[in-house]
Amino acid sequence: MQQTTLGVSLVGCGSAPLSVALSNEDLSQMVDTSDEWIATRTGIRQRHIATAQDSLSSLAAQAGSAALEMSGLTAEAVDLIILATSTPDDLFGSAAQVQAQLGANRAAAFDLTAACSGFVFALVTAAQYLRMGVYQTVLVVGADVLSRWTDWSDRRTCVLFGDGAGAVVLQASDRDRLLGFEMRSDGSMNGCLTLPYQAESSVLVDDKMTQAGTFAPIDMNGKEVYRFAVKRVPEIVEKALYRANLTTQDVDWLLLHQANQRILDAVASRLDIPAERVISNMSRHGNTSAASIPIALDEAVRAGQIKPGDVVASSGFGAGLSWGAAIFEWG
């Protein structure tokens, strides 16, 4: 049987509400910092944190449910769930838990780990299944609970990160609205941003040893990550635009991973995209890793900023180091 190449449409988005907000003033009671210091350097005023009752899978399922509701589809219509996360409830994967909580009984489900690039990488991965006609409907979720792995005594990093989940529903379409993409990785720079496993030797029997340990908190070389982002992100957005046969003049909205307002401003300046066309929810959410792009997308769509037919240039970048861009038309 001959396969037919199809297109991709983004038909719904959603995010999970988190009830607990941790303000800069709250952090100033924990470490030597201030609201002014954090806001002027990062653009962040608060971040949300998961409660003891929240799990990564429950937040992801809430986001997925909201996206399905917007799309007008039921969970039973979903063929595949891709969960982009670096903080699963279970190291064997949490996507199947999301599938069960949604009641998406027909869907296969798997985790994809690419840190802050995870949502873009998952979006591109999902599109390939749809374009080849393997599946008709795919739910892509970006979710992270970084508070689990934040050193709350380290003022360099604890001011940056928050928890969250966002999702989009993709469907096969006779018109392809994923207009272009590009993905890159550079493992030689891995040490700039890590959440490393720290092993300790443990004796099994005689001279036979094994590892026993846990993951250390997030560690980041902020200056190197900033340099990496402001150089590589404009490049990869331009490459994705080239693949889409578009220029920055065709872009209605620039939607970047919400890492730092200074990075957003610098990338927009290098791409010659005016500030009023840059989506930012940095002040309210901080850096939510794989969740940041779909949360910002959901808020912008529901607020009426991003409208059907708008061209969005999105880019994720971070640990790995990895970075990617996807150009898509909403709706």
Rank of each mutant, 00 (worst) to 15 (best):
V31R: 03
V31Q: 04
V31E: 01
D32T: 10
D32A: 12
D32L: 04
D32W: 02
D32S: 12
D32V: 08
D32H: 05
T33I: 05
T33R: 07
T33F: 02
D35A: 01
D35Q: 00
E36Q: 14
E36K: 13
E36D: 15
W37C: 13
I38Y: 04
I38E: 04
I38H: 06
A39Q: 14
A39C: 12
A39L: 12
A39V: 08
T40A: 13
R41V: 09
R41I: 10
R41D: 07
R41M: 10
T42V: 07
G43P: 07
G43Y: 09
G43N: 09
G43F: 08
G43M: 09
I44M: 10
I44Y: 11
I44H: 09
R45N: 13
R45A: 09
Q46F: 02
H48I: 00
H48L: 02
H48F: 10
I49Q: 02
I49K: 00
A50W: 05
A50M: 07
A50S: 10
A50Y: 05
T51W: 10
T51Y: 11
T51V: 10
A52H: 13
A52C: 06
A52Q: 14
A52K: 13
Q53C: 01
Q53F: 02
D54L: 10
D54S: 11
D54F: 11
D54R: 08
D54E: 14
D54G: 09
D54I: 10
S55D: 06
S55F: 03
L56Y: 03
L56M: 12
S57D: 04
S57F: 01
S58E: 15
L59T: 08
L59P: 06
L59S: 07
L59I: 11
L59H: 07
L59K: 07
A60C: 10
A60N: 06
A60P: 05
A61H: 04
A61Y: 02
A61D: 04
A61F: 01
Q62F: 02
Q62Y: 03
Q62H: 11
Q62N: 13
Q62D: 14
A63N: 00
A63C: 01
A63K: 00
G64Y: 08
G64K: 08
G64W: 05
G64M: 06
G64Q: 07
S65L: 14
S65F: 12
S65V: 07
S65R: 15
S65W: 12
A66P: 01
L68R: 09
L68E: 10
L68H: 10
L68G: 09
E69G: 02
E69N: 10
E69L: 11
E69A: 13
E69Y: 04
M70G: 08
M70D: 12
M70L: 12
S71N: 04
S71M: 00
S71H: 04
G72Y: 06
G72C: 06
L73K: 13
L73W: 01
L73A: 02
L73F: 04
L73M: 12
T74Q: 15
A75W: 01
A75N: 00
A75M: 00
A75L: 00
E76G: 14
E76H: 15
E76F: 14
E76M: 14
E76Q: 15
A77L: 00
A77Q: 11
A77W: 00
A77T: 07
V78T: 15
V78G: 12
V78H: 12
D79H: 12
D79L: 14
D79V: 13
D79Q: 13
D79N: 15
D79I: 12
